[in-house]
Design a protein around this nucleic acid. Structure first.
Length: 478
RNA sequence: UCCUAAGUAGCUCAGCUGGUUAGAGCAUCUGACUGUUAAUCAGAGGGUCCCUGGUUCGAGCCCAGGCUUGGGAGCCA
């Protein structure tokens, strides 16, 4: 038997008359005659034509949606209309049966909610084939972008002993017996007897460790899983997600913004060039979905137009203070359409405000900078005004914050003072502060939420549909 | 965690003012047909009406509590 050919290649082939073998899964079987087979190499199926008059009835019955097949036959020009190429089957072998009464995927449209419940099977749908191909392309592009620019990929620890990262609630890592942990004399749990001899958690960020490496390699990035034990139930939060965190020595906030904008544009462009077929499918899917919505809620641009628009335009860069002025003077604020009205400088922006800036006012990605220090993390570089820090958030339409970063505070005294004010235990963080003690240098970095990027590029609207097996409150299935 | 909507056949949904045997489309099965594109046509099977309790002569429908899911908010990437 011939070597297995990929359907993706055969669909482009004109080598009519040659014998080929394909292996894949049945999508539909029409008319006891036409099998649509998909092998995952492309979103498209190839049509296999069976001569049902000369094929065993028992075999025909086993060709059901979902069954795994090996087909050998002649590649021919299609007589039918929907395709140019098809395979005239000589031999059909059932590799794995699929009980049609029990298999949940039917040749029809399923809701994303239902598919989420069968996440182990949803890979076999066109939508998820496209989504995870795009996800792969974006991940590859991230590595290519940084590698081409001389960045070093750092693997920062997943298990962390520091609880001072301040980025949210953490998942405890322990081998102690839950019901009967060892205790100290005063009754507290004795973590000295735990596996690591101290309290440990899953990481909420690789940033602090990345900063250490940046102080030697100059340019580093991390790309790994990140964990937040927040009880967040939204379309853009996960308890386990992937984050990209570059950190660059000698960069200031403007360099940082340039890097983030270059990265985003590069990976989007890469996906468009390498996943044209998938994105075209997702564009159509989105248009179909939006037909259900009222006119006013539909997007002005289709998926591809939106991505192109993002590539063709500079991200709008405004300071927090300017943003507050825009919001304060907005019709929405004056007509009291915001749930939270903008009155004073210093308040954190609600998502309705971010959406207004991105979707109504600027109508493109926005980089907000120089936030009040009181609503930002301790490690951000303090501005001369004494009120703001060199922070930057990149806001994307439909997604909200996709990047959060800053120029870091490299001045030891100022950093220590800020840690004291914010009750960060400096002693435990000696290793972090050492970078400021020994050859400190200006540096900057940011965190890019990978799933949020995939959301934006695929046009999907729920983050649970862009990661294979989402972990969210009350759900760790599969 | 808060606000809000929902949970009825494998899937998507309908189910009137509380009233007899809970319906439709698709899927599945059986048969017919055979160049179909989620094939078509005919027929059949398929229900813990989310769970627990309550009100009532009677609950899919009303009430209370719980669970799960969608959407929004907060936290953030």
């Amino acid at each position: 038997m011939a070597k297995r050919a990929k359907i993706k290649e055969l669909l482009k082939s004109t080598a009519f008359g040659t014998e080929v073998t394909i292996k894949g899964w049945v999508r539909t079987f029409r008319n006891s005659q036409f099998i649509a087979i998909n092998d995952g190499s492309t979103i498209s199926n190839i049509q296999v034509v069976v001569d049902f008059n000369n094929t065993d009835d028992a075999l025909l019955k086993r060709i059901t949606t979902g069954a795994a097949l090996s087909v050998t036959g002649e590649l021919v020009e299609s007589l039918g209309k929907g395709q140019t190429v098809e395979i005239k089957a000589k031999q059909v072998e059932i590799l794995g049966d699929c009980d049609a009464e029990k298999f949940p995927l039917q040749p029809k449209k399923h809701s994303l909610e239902f598919l989420r419940e069968i996440a182990h099977l949803r890979f076999r749908t066109n939508t998820f084939n496209a989504v995870f191909k795009v996800r792969h392309a974006l991940a590859f592009a991230v590595h290519k972008f940084f590698n081409d620019r001389g960045f070093v990929y750092m693997h920062t620890p997943i298990i962390t002993g520091s609880d001072a990262e301040g980025a949210g609630e953490m998942f405890r890592v322990s081998t102690l017996e839950l019901g009967n942990p060892p205790r100290t004399d005063d009754g507290a749990i004795n973590f000295k007897e735990d596996f690591f001899g101290k309290e440990t958690n899953l990481t909420v960020s690789g940033q602090l460790e990345a900063e250490l490496a940046a102080m030697a390699f100059g340019e580093v990035y991390t790309f790994g899983p990140t964990f937040r034990a927040e009880n967040s139930n939204t379309t853009r939060h996960l308890a386990e997600f992937w984050m990209i965190e570059p950190e660059v020595a000698f960069n200031d906030l403007v360099d940082n913004m340039d890097l983030a904008e270059d990265l985003l544009k590069y990976v989007i462009k890469y996906a468009m060039e390498n996943c044209a077929e998938e994105l075209e499918f997702l564009k159509t899917r989105l248009l179909e979905e939006e037909k259900q919505k009222p006119q006013t809620e539909r997007s002005e641009l289709d998926l591809l137009a939106k991505l192109n628009f993002c590539l063709d335009n500079e991200f709008e860069r405004v300071t927090y203070t300017e943003a507050i002025e825009i919001l304060k003077n907005s019709k929405a604020n004056q007509k009291k359409q915001f749930k939270y009205l903008i009155e004073d400088w210093g308040a954190d922006l609600q998502s309705e405000h971010e959406r207004y800036l991105v979707e109504k006012h600027f109508k493109k990605p926005v980089i907000l900078t120089d936030y009040p220090k009181d609503i930002k993390a301790f490690y951000m570089r303090q501005n001369e005004d004494g009120k703001t820090v060199r922070a930057m958030d990149i806001l994307f339409p439909g997604i909200g914050e996709i990047v959060g970063g800053s120029q870091r505070e490299e001045r030891l005294e100022l950093l220590e003072k800020r840690m004291q004010e914010m009750h960060i235990p400096a002693e435990e963080m000696y290793w972090y502060l050492d970078t400021r003690r020994f050859g400190s240098a200006p540096h900057a970095g940011f965190g890019l939420g990978f799933e949020r990027l995939v959301l934006f590029v695929t046009g999907m609207t729920n983050i649970r549909d862009v990661i294979p097996f989402p972990r969210t409150p009350k759900n760790a299935e599969f």
